[in-house]
Design a protein around this nucleic acid. Structure first.
Length: 476
RNA sequence: GGUCCCAUCGUCUAGUGGUUAGGACACCGGCCUUUCACGUCGGUAACAGGGGUUCAAGUCCCCUUGGGAUCACCA
């Protein structure tokens, strides 16, 4: 039993973003690989921006991806007394101090510093203050060292070091008594015994301050691993204008969680030339050290390719279950029509998403479709109706409507009429599916069954007769 | 602007001083074929630039350039 403890700590101000999902995935993977614990913590110290809907959305995303957590969700809003205690402790030890400067004063100082091209840092006015006007509102600031350096060995980026003079005295408790992010994250990670912090590299600049806080609090500093950002096609931070950024949106677009996980993990991490990984393989082969250092661009094409792969490989029964909601969304009740599992089997090789598969499955359940007339025109030579009639006739006599007997039936018709397979199969496909893009004709017939096939053929015969008559009229 | 991070095909990446710089997505072409796909075979395509170190540099060092992050009583 290894003692590693990892955590994912989203703030509930929106849905689960693909970037966050990847960070969560890396944490989860490492926890599973090392047989440690994976903790989910909700960072909701900003009461105004946090919502329960966001918490639910994040949990839904995590569950969909299969990232089950061992402890939590722990809400920071439940832990305010703990943070308060640690603030008092620092205050007592003079490692923190009360600051009575107003936001207006601070803004003015910042403005001035920027004007004078100086660093906009807090000037420590209140550090040496003797009077304690506690009836006036105050914030608590961390007394940060003014010299020296703070460094750490990032598991992904290598050694990173900062001059302490770059760090000013950050606020750890607001004037309303609530603690701020950099403080609570340290208190939580410390008291929860987090051994390795894996998070986005937008937190690198926070890390030295946090290390200083660990030290002030007397806790060991954890290991850090800062994973690079995910960017959009134009190399800017991935946002809605690049497409969907919510994990759940991908679920709704018909992606499989296996594909999403596989895509996300391979974006920034690699294992030789391998592209496809089962969850077990990932757990076995993942290592945080082989995560790349540079930002990656989110590539929907590759995600689609992976999704297509997983659709092909999926167990048809399970895939059918996943497809049903997508059919329902199109107003189709799969109970009224052919066996959905058989339908799925004919579509697995030609759908990249469940949405595409639902589109491709539509004709099986909707008999009243319109025909692709333009394509049908090519086969109008006066005998098409009779070909359909012959198929219907012979097919209704066939003992077993399986692939093989359908094959021989069509071959017989072809040889009997001196026609090529495409002369018969192509128009027949239009008759049965309405269009030209569909699964193999014999598979379609087999799935549709004898009765439905014959009925569709009869409907097509009527339609073709009208077309042929029209053609004669036009020529006159 | 300060600080910090990053830099191999369009994209994701392999590469840990000696390689015809490999794979995958996408793209293009051949094959397969009852359509559309799938599949399969092949092709185009990269070490940002400049200095060092070294017998030898995509690999190590420095600079430049370019991209990104961060500088809140947000997280």
């Amino acid at each position: 039993m290894s003692g590693v403890r990892l955590r994912f700590a989203p703030s509930p101000t929106g849905y689960l973003h693909v970037g966050g999902a990847r960070t969560a995935l890396f944490n989860w993977l490492l926890a599973r690989k090392e047989k440690g614990k994976f903790i989910l913590r909700i960072e909701d110290t900003d009461l105004a921006r946090s919502t329960q809907e966001s918490v639910d959305a994040i949990l839904e995303g995590m569950c969909w991806l299969g990232l089950e957590w061992d402890e939590g969700p722990i809400y920071q809003s439940d832990r305010f007394p703990i943070y308060r205690e640690f603030v008092e402790k620092l205050l007592l030890e003079k490692k923190a101090y009360k600051c009575f400067c107003t936001p207006e004063e601070l803004d003015a100082k910042r403005e001035k510093a920027i004007q004078e091209k100086k660093k906009p840092q807090y000037d420590r006015t209140c550090l040496e203050r003797q009077t304690d006007d506690s009836d006036r509102p105050f914030v608590v600031r961390f007394n940060s060292p003014e010299s020296g350096t703070t460094a750490f060995d990032d598991l992904i980026k290598g050694r990173i070091s900062f001059n302490n003079e770059e760090l000013d005295d950050l606020i750890i408790q607001r004037s309303d008594g609530t603690p701020t992010y950099n403080f609570v994250v340290v208190v939580d990670d410390a008291t929860m015994g987090i051994s390795t912090v894996i998070r986005g590299d937008d937190h690198i600049n926070n890390t030295p301050r946090q290390i200083l806080l660990y030290e002030a609090l007397g806790y060991p500093v954890p290991l850090f691993a800062h994973v690079p950002m995910i960017l959009g096609a134009d190399k800017s931070r991935l946002s809605k204008r690049h497409g969907a950024t919510s994990v759940i949106a991908y679920k709704e677009m018909g992606f499989l969680p296996e594909a999403m996980v596989n895509y996300l993990v391979r974006l920034g991490w690699s294992y030789g030339d391998q592209e496809i990984f089962t969850k077990e393989e990932l757990i076995e082969r993942f290592s945080i050290g082989s995560v790349g250092r540079s930002a990656g661009i989110f590539n929907p094409d590759k995600l689609s390719w992976l999704n297509a792969h997983y659709i092909k490989e999926y167990e048809p029964v399970r895939l059918a279950e996943l497809l049903v909601p997508f059919m329902k969304k199109k107003g189709i009740d799969v109970a009224n029509g052919p066996d959905i599992v058989k339908v799925v089997k004919t579509l697995q090789d030609r759908a990249r998403t469940l949405v595409e598969m639902a589109d491709g499955a539509e004709f099986y359940y909707k008999a009243g479709f319109s025909y692709d007339e333009k394509s049908l025109q090519k086969f109008l030579n006066g005998t098409l109706a009779s070909i359909f009639e012959e198929i219907a006739e012979k097919f209704s006599l066939v003992a077993k409507a399986d692939h093989e007997s359908i094959d021989t039936l069509f071959k017989n018709i072809c040889s009997g009429r001196g026609l090529k397979m495409k002369d018969v199969a192509l128009p027949a496909r239009i008759a049965l599916t309405g269009g030209t893009a569909a699964p193999g004709l014999f598979d379609v017939i087999e799935v549709l069954g004898k009765e439905e096939t014959v009925s569709r053929l009869q409907r097509a015969i009527e339609f073709v007769k009208i077309l042929e008559q029209k053609k004669i009229d036009d020529n006159e």
